[in-house]
Design a protein around this nucleic acid. Structure first.
Lengths: 369, 369
DNA sequence: CCTCGGACGTTATACGTAACACTGAGGAGT
DNA sequence: ACTCCTCAGTGTTACGTATAACGTCCGAGG
């Protein structure tokens, strides 16, 4: 290997020459089939008879006025022939950007957040971005923060306020951050995408008041999250205008069974029975329906039940749930759009997303006393 | 390379010197706060007073017998102080591997596949891998294959057989592939992770036969996918041993409403009514329950209904669904484990995953004629 | 005749990492 | 005294891309 090809390149460049020789040989052999190594921009260049820089220019669409139409065509053809795909790692290294965003949600197994992901991924794909998920917020094994190792591979973060513990370490990094459905007061410098939950709750409450309900119990998620705080506040505010309305609250673990237990408590308590159970999400509402059933009560005639989120579950139940349908896909899409805006230095478009009230079979006028 | 190396390299190397000078100045200024550029292994090296190569050795855990305990400690301390994180793009470029797997599923908004993802991500994280999702198989805008641009950033693929259209382009690449719940006959060279669905269906059928059911209708998913083919086959096979059992099939769009319509057809058909509706998934079963309700039939006394998958939905319904619970998380975990095995050249551990029969309130003995 | 812009490219880096090939010092063996 | 190890590291390279900084050729203008 201590080749003597040209007189003086001697010691230092010997390995270079050797390697280059090997590669040249391989490349010359068949152009592409050698070793099945994926083709690089240099391979395209030599196939097209131009320099690697020109390939980069043409395929990067920055060639107007710098490369002739004919040459550009040659390059594109060669790239096509070889099945050239740019190496993303090399590009990221060179540019210092990865075109990848991190989405942090409490649990992907929730249909709601799955849709948030879908929306974010859709918008991302339209702009050549990818979306990765924060791996298992539930925590795997020893609590090594997975964000830690991945942050060099990210351009920005979109985070739900419900993923509290993950947020701490993310705040520490100086990555652009977009918060979803979070307290505007503490979002700090981060952009945020919010829902007009207060308005939705007001309309839901008016629907129930209009049916004649006066005794409400809020089946409240036992989770310390902005979105649930807002729901509770809005419900209280919406009932405040009706003097004879009364509101109690029972906290529930966020699951079907948690909802069932809370509703059994609410419906079995001494004193006049509530006629409307306003639940913090559709699963809680499903549990509430089960509780009613167990106590021999009929939904909606004995007790009305409302949900929150508008998941598929809402229409799978019998009766179907009256619920507030949150535009989950839109939340994700707007979140990604906001992140892209931040990354490009554009102003973030603001305005809360509307929430839809879906009136279905689980609510009706209460039976007269 | 047409250089005249020694004396007059002046001109050529001038920019190098300038750049290096700038960097040296910046680095010297404050060690890390300059420009907020993330620290590199070279920064760690100079902070620890060693070479970059040593840093790589120590942090890569390949230093036994090559670096003294003391020096290693110094390096680790410096890395800690600077908050050093290896640049993943650079590492991938150097190693030609990305430690990233692609998961291809038909829809993330299905709870089942969300759990598959969770399992895959868990195992991946345990091995320092990441999992990305095939972006929107539903197809965004013009059908530019998203896999196309991303394949250089992947080490392997895990794919559900239900994501048919995406599979074509993936088969073309020579990435290691693991198929989930797919036809062993056509999996080809790919490894696969399968479920013992036939056994589950047999147990489910025996449960129904044991209750006295003889007239079955299969509410079959209107999807051309291996897993549904197996379900249909297994059901027919399990009933074959009981001469007086009869089986009809109604195809249904894979949704609650599809299930409702199919069940209305099944229950409203002329001739003796089926007493058991065996549905291809839990959403179809929910629809079947709604259909029964609309026709004034009681579940399970007038008609038994069974689901498939064991989603949260199954226990949210009233009555709760008797269903076959698929170990979705395990499927994802085994898929990732298989991919890791392939990547490391280890043999893939085989054996079908068991399926659990959950007997709940939606099945009972049929009312005597 | 000289020069001066385009048009059309090319050359030479740098990005941050991992790994190979070395080196120098201090013994051990013969 | 010589070689041969081992220890404890260092110097250098290449991975594939994007881009700043240069050429070169050519026709037109002075």
């Amino acid at each position: 290997m201590t080749s003597q090809d040209s007189p003086e390149s001697a010691a230092a460049s010997a390995p270079v020459a050797a390697r280059a020789g090997v590669r040249a040989a391989r490349a010359a052999l068949s152009g592409r089939a050698a070793g099945t190594r994926p083709p690089t921009s240099r391979d395209v260049a030599s196939a097209a008879g131009v320099s690697q820089a020109t390939v980069s220019l043409v395929l990067g669409d920055k060639w107007r006025g710098r490369v002739s139409e004919r040459t550009a065509g040659l390059v594109r053809e060669a790239a096509q022939d070889l099945g050239y795909r740019p190496n993303l790692a090399a590009r990221s290294l060179r540019l210092g950007r990865t075109r990848t965003a991190l989405l942090v949600v409490p649990a992907m197994t929730s249909e709601f957040f799955a849709q948030v992901y879908a929306g974010a991924a859709r918008v991302a794909a339209e702009h050549g971005f990818g979306v990765v998920l924060y791996p298992s917020p539930e925590g795997i094994g020893p609590a090594r923060d997975p964000f830690d190792s991945a942050r060099t591979a990210l351009d920005g973060v979109i985070a739900s306020s419900m993923a509290a513990e993950a947020l701490a370490s993310i705040r520490g990094s100086d990555l652009p951050l977009v918060m979803l459905d979070s307290d505007p007061a503490e979002a700090g410098p981060a952009a945020h995408v919010n829902l007009d939950i207060a308005d939705g709750v007001r309309r839901l409450t008016e629907h129930l008041l209009g049916l004649g309900h006066r005794r409400f119990t809020h089946i409240a998620a036992d989770v310390d999250s902005w979105t649930f705080v807002v729901r509770a506040r809005a419900l209280a505010a919406a009932l405040a205008g009706t003097p004879d309305a009364e509101l109690r609250t029972v906290r529930a673990e966020l699951s079907v069974d948690g909802g069932r237990r809370a509703a059994e408590t609410a419906l079995g308590s001494p004193g006049p029975r509530p006629t409307a159970l306003v639940c913090d999400d559709d699963f809680l509402a499903a549990g509430a329906c089960k509780a009613a059933h167990r106590l021999g009560l009929h939904v909606p005639d004995d007790v009305s039940v409302t949900g929150f989120d508008g998941l598929n579950l809402a229409t799978a139940l019998e009766p179907e749930l009256t619920t507030l349908t949150l535009p989950a896909e839109q939340v994700g899409a707007r979140g990604m759009a906001a992140l892209l805006a931040v990354l490009e230095g554009r102003p973030v478009e603001s305005g809360d997303l509307p929430v839809a009230l879906a009136v279905r079979g689980s609510t009706a006028a209460p039976r007269p006393a």
